[in-house]
Each structure stands twice: as C-alpha cells, then as structure tokens.
C-alpha cells in the first residue's frame, strides 16, 4: 500500500499541482523541448519548400524527417564542446546555460488556464516581462567571455538591438494592460472572452509582434549572428551541447513571446473548450498553444522571404518605427478607455 500511495502522491504532485506541472510540462520544459524539435524542423522544411528543395528527410524518412532535430540534438550531446584556451572559462560555460535557463523561466510563469497556473499574482505580467529582459545580458557576457573579435562585435550588436526593442516591448504590453486595467495575465485573458486584445488595440499588437521578431533574431532581424559578416556572432567559439543550448535559447524566447502574444492579444484560452478539462485541467490551455504556434510558424516562414537588415537599420526600426508605434498604442489605449470606459 505504501508504494501505491507514494505513486499516487507523486502523480498528484506532478500532474495536478499547477505549481509543479506548469514549469515541468505545460507550458514549461517538456513542451518546450518537444516544440524545439518540431519548430526547427518545420523552419527548415518551410524554407526548403519555398526554395524548391526537400529539406531534412533521411532521419525517419516516412515522417518527412521529423526526427532530424533529435538526431542533431544527440550529435550536439556527444560532440566534444571545445573550450578554447583564451576564453574566460566561467563566462564561457555558464553563459549558455544561464541564457537558456533565463529564456525558459518566463515560460514557467505563464498560466495554462484560468484555474491552472503556476504563478498566481496580480503582477504576473510584470514578472514575465522582467524575466524576459534578463536573457540578453548573458548574450553579452558570452560575447565578452569568448575573447574573439567577431563574438564581441556580435554581442555589441545584440546589446544595441536590445536597447532599441525593450522600451517598445514594455510600452506595448502596458498599453494593452491599461485597456484591461490589470497586470494579471489570467485576468486579462478572462476579460478577452468577449473581445480580443488585437481588436481593442491593434497598434499594440503589431508592435509587440515586431518586437518578438526582433528580440528573437527572426529574419529580417537576424543580425547578431549574421553569418557572412561576423561568422556566428556571439556564438562563434561554441560547439557541442553549449552551442545547442545557445541555438535553442532564441527559439525558447520566441515561444514565450508567442505565448504571451496569444494570451494578451488573441484571447488566450477563449473560446474555451470545456470538455477538454475532463482529460486534464490544463488541457484547455492547448488553445493558447495552437494560437502561439501559428504565430511561430509565421515567424519562421519569414526566413524564406527576407534577407537581413543592417544593424543600424534595425535600430532605426526600433526607435523610429516601434517606439513611435508603442507611444501611439498608449494613446490609442487611452482613447479606447475614454470612449468605452
């Protein structure tokens, strides 16, 4: 009896306690890893299709090579991570790990559904935003720690870009929060049951989407890693699993931002499919996931369409376009509040 009790206690803890389930399963780590494998594969497939090619195919051929990324992951695991003599060892090793971790942590704080959420707080939106700004610091640290000119230039670029997108990111999220008068993600979603955020403030939505693309180095803003200019930017010296972490980090961040976009602007888990709740309390949250996935697919599709901007042009987009847009979105929110009340 003892054993079965422990097991059922464990199951209860793992699967029915949101404080544990959210960070580990959905929307946390497990979902992220599965998504990484899928989305990078899809990115390569989409690019290949537009480019008249097949893309990854030979790993699990019948399924269109979907396990290619798993194979790549295994390769990264077993490849020797070369640590050059000239690098700052602590920064070099800790950087990627912390970068990935900080990219992942905000995901753990996202709610799965109204009742099922890891973090119950009036300020959950602020918490997520604050954590999101942590990751770029490590980008700069690894660029510095790599002791390589290309890495340094790459991370300086990253730094400039961060400065140009962070303010619009905050302003546009605050604009939407203003409309709802809340900084609690759950509350914001609940209030969207009638009208999605994207309709209430389309300017904020557009700004946030663009910011998401810039901050996760999607095309045309893949600037810090611009291959033909600065090799791999901050990641030049990396190999093996450390490189794998770095590569995954930007996708994780993109996932978090897409989830946030779905929650703030696309009505979150509305329209809610209540019968899903019978399977698992977090299951209705799948609606959010699907919405986020659509955003991500759009983001990765851009790779097949665009070249990349120059860093000064990206910064100009940040300050001239996005900053203006985010100010506008605040004004728009004020107007909406004033009109609708």
């Amino acid at each position: 009896m003892q054993v079965s009790e422990i097991i059922s206690w464990l199951i209860n803890l793992l699967f029915y306690k949101p404080e544990v389930f959210c960070p580990i399963f959905y929307p946390g780590l497990v979902t992220i890893l599965a998504l990484l494998i899928f989305i990078i594969w899809l990115e390569r497939k989409i690019a290949a299709k537009v480019q008249l090619r097949y893309g990854p195919l030979y790993v699990t051929r019948k399924a269109g090579g979907i396990l290619q990324l798993l194979a790549d992951l295994l390769r990264y695991m077993f490849q020797e991570p070369i640590i050059p003599k000239t690098v700052d060892k602590i920064a070099f090793i800790a950087g990627p790990v912390l970068l990935f971790a900080t990219a992942y942590v905000p995901a753990a704080l996202l709610p799965a559904t109204a009742e099922f959420t890891g973090l119950r707080s009036e300020l959950s939106l602020l918490a997520v935003l604050a954590l999101l700004t942590l990751a770029p610091i490590f980008d700069i640290i690894i660029g510095w720690g790599s002791n390589n000119k290309f890495s340094l230039i790459g991370s300086m670029r990253e730094g400039y870009i961060v400065m140009s997108y962070e303010i619009p990111m905050f302003l546009s999220t605050l604009a939407i929060a203003m409309v709802y008068g809340s900084l609690n993600i759950v509350e914001i979603v609940e209030m969207q049951s009638r009208c999605w955020g994207i309709l209430l403030n389309p300017i904020a939505a557009a700004t946030f989407l663009l910011v998401a693309l810039i901050s996760t180095a999607r095309f045309p803003f893949e600037i810090a890693e611009a291959e033909t200019e600065i090799v791999m930017g901050p990641y030049t010296e990396y190999s093996g699993i450390l490189y794998g972490l770095l590569m995954g980090a930007s996708y994780v961040k993109f996932y978090v931002l897409s989830m946030l976009f779905a929650l703030l602007f696309l009505g979150g888990w509305h329209p809610s499919i209540t019968w899903l709740e019978k399977i698992h309390p977090a299951a209705p949250g799948l609606v959010v996931f699907i919405k986020a996935l659509i955003i991500m697919v759009f983001g990765i599709f851009l790779r097949a369409v665009y070249p990349r901007f120059r860093v000064d042009q990206a910064i100009r987009v940040g300050w001239h376009l996005l900053f203006m847009l985010s100010m506008l979105s605040i004004a728009y929110s004020l107007a909406v509040i004033w009109l609708v009340g």
Binding site: I46, K49, V50, Q51, L52, R53, Y54, F301, A304, V305, Y306
Partner: peptide, 19 residues
C-alpha cells in the same frame, strides 16, 4: 508582395531536387 510570393511557393508543386 514578397510575403505572398513566398507563400505561393510554399503551396506550389515544383521541386528541383533529384534524389
């Protein structure tokens, strides 16, 4: 236009690859 052209090729048939 650029996005639509990309989308067009996403759904169009042709592929150049010889396996």
């Amino acid at each position: 236009e650029a996005l639509l052209t990309g989308a067009k090729y996403l759904v169009a048939k042709p592929r150049m690859t010889v396996m």
